[in-house]
Design a protein around this nucleic acid. Structure first.
Lengths: 218, 218
DNA sequence: CCAGACTGGATCGTATACGATTTGATCGCT
DNA sequence: AGCGATCAAATCGTATACGATCCAGTCTGG
C-alpha cells in the first residue's frame, strides 16, 4: 500500500523545487517560470506561486516583482553571511544536543567519519558533502530545540545550492574537516562542558569559511 | 508628495497582518479568515493567502489545511524555544556589532535606558517593551550580517504576539534588565573582547527566560 | 438519555481568465 | 552607425468561480 498523498499541491510544489535546488539540478541563477513549473507539476500557477514565495522567505529564491524568480546565487558576501549564521546555529545545536548524545551515536558518527577519511584519496565533493551532512545529522538527532534545528536545516539547504560546498575549492580543507570531526567526538565522549563543545562546533564551520576566504584572496 | 504605493497586494497584506500581530491587535489564537481579511483590505483572497503562508513560514501563524489560520500561541515550550534562539542570535548580533558601535550610539542607548529606569516606578509593559526594543535596535544599527539581524527581528515579532513579554509577569525582572543594559554598555565602552560581549548579551536574554521559568514553576 | 450518522453552512484549495508590467528587439531619426 | 522611442511577446498579479473539505448542530435508533 502506498502512503496516501495527503499534501496540498502547493506543498508538493514546495518539496519539488526544494529538492531540485538541494540536489543542484537548479543551480544558482536558474530561472523559474511559474507557468512552466505549473505544467511540469500538472497544476495551475497559484499553488506554484505560493511555493515560490515560501522559498523566497527562506532565501533560497530571489523574487523580483513582475520579473520572476531565480535560484538565489551565493556571492562571497552571501557566503559569508550564510556560513557565519550556520556556524552560530550549528555550534549551539551541537551544544544543546551534547548531553543527549549516546555512546552508540558517537560510534555511528565515527563510522561515518571513517568513510569520509577513506574518500579523501579519490575525492568526490558530492558524496563527501553528503557524508558530512549525515555526520552532523547524527549528532542533531534528538535536538531539544526544533527552532534551532530548523535554522540549521535552512542553512544546509542554502548551501546546497552550490553543490560542492568549499571542499572542492580549498585544497586540504576536507582533511582538516575530518580531523575536526574526530576532535569533536572526543570532546563529546569526554563529556566536556557545553561551552567547549559549542566553541568547537562553531570553529569547525568557521574554519571552512576562513579557508575559503583565504583561498579566494590568493 | 506621498510615497508611491509600489508594493504588491500580497506584500500589503503581509505588512498589515504582521503589524496587527506585532501590536497585539491579533492575539494568540486569533482566527484569521481569508475572505474576511480580503474584504478588509479590499483585495481578493489569493494575495491574502500568500501573505498568510509567508507568515506561517516565520512561525507567526499556524495554518491547518482546510481549516484555517490562527495566530500562533506561545505555550511555555514554545516560549523556551523562541527565547533560546533569540538569546543565541541577539548575543551574536551584539558581538558582531560591538566593534562598530560608536560613543554616540552608546550615549543614545544610555538615554533610552535612563527612560526605562524612570518608568520602573509606574510600570507599563507596553511602553517598556517598546523602549527595550529601541535600546537593542540602536546597538544593531550597523549589523554587518543581515541574515543574523533578520533572525533577531523574527524573534522579536514572534514575542510581540504576547505583548507584554515577561516583564509584566515576573516581578523585579524589569529592574534587573535595566541593570544588565548598563553593564552591557559598560563592556562595550571598555572595548571588552567580543566573546565577553556575546556572553553578556546572551545571558541578558536567557535571564529573562529563566526568571519566567522559575516564576512559572512556583 | 446517549451515541453515532446526517446535513447545511462556512471556509478552504485550485483552475481559469484577463489586465498589468517588463523585456528585448525593431524601427526611425539624427 | 549610434541612440532613443515604439511595439509585441512573455510573464507576472489578481479577480472570480466552483468544487472539496471541515465543523457544528440536528436527527434518529438504541
Amino acid at each position: 500500500m502506498v502512503t496516501t498523498e495527503n499534501a496540498s499541491k502547493s506543498e508538493t510544489a514546495y518539496q519539488y523545487v526544494l529538492e531540485k535546488i538541494r540536489s543542484g539540478s537548479y543551480g544558482p541563477g536558474y530561472r523559474l517560470v511559474l507557468s512552466r513549473l505549473a505544467d511540469e507539476l500538472d497544476m495551475s500557477v497559484v499553488p506554484v506561486r505560493e511555493a515560490i514565495r515560501r522559498l523566497e522567505s527562506e532565501r533560497l529564491i530571489t523574487y523580483l516583482r513582475n520579473v520572476g524568480a531565480t535560484v538565489t546565487g551565493i556571492d562571497p558576501t552571501e557566503y559569508l553571511y550564510t556560513m557565519q549564521t550556520l556556524a552560530l546555529v550549528e555550534g549551539y545545536a551541537t551544544a544543546l544536543c551534547a548531553p543527549l548524545v549516546t555512546p552508540a551515536d558517537i560510534a555511528r558518527a565515527r563510522e561515518v567519519n571513517r568513510q569520509m577519511r577513506e574518500r579523501l584519496a579519490d575525492f568526490d565533493p558530492r558524496t563527501f558533502t553528503e557524508l558530512n551532512l549525515r555526520f552532523h545529522a547524527i549528532l542533531f538527532e534528538n535536538c531539544p530545540n526544533p527552532h534551532v534545528l530548523d535554522l540549521v536545516h535552512r542553512g544546509w539547504n542554502r548551501l546546497g545550492a552550490l553543490r560542492s560546498s568549499t571542499f572542492a575549492y580549498v585544497p586540504g580543507r576536507a582533511a582538516s574537516s575530518v580531523d575536526e570531526h574526530d576532535a569533536l567526538l572526543d570532546a563529546l565522549e569526554a563529556g566536556d562542558d557545553v561551552e567547549t563543545i559549542e566553541h568547537l562546533a562553531r570553529r569547525h564551520r568557521l574554519a571552512t569559511l576562513e579557508a575559503y576566504l583565504a583561498h579566494a584572496a590568493a
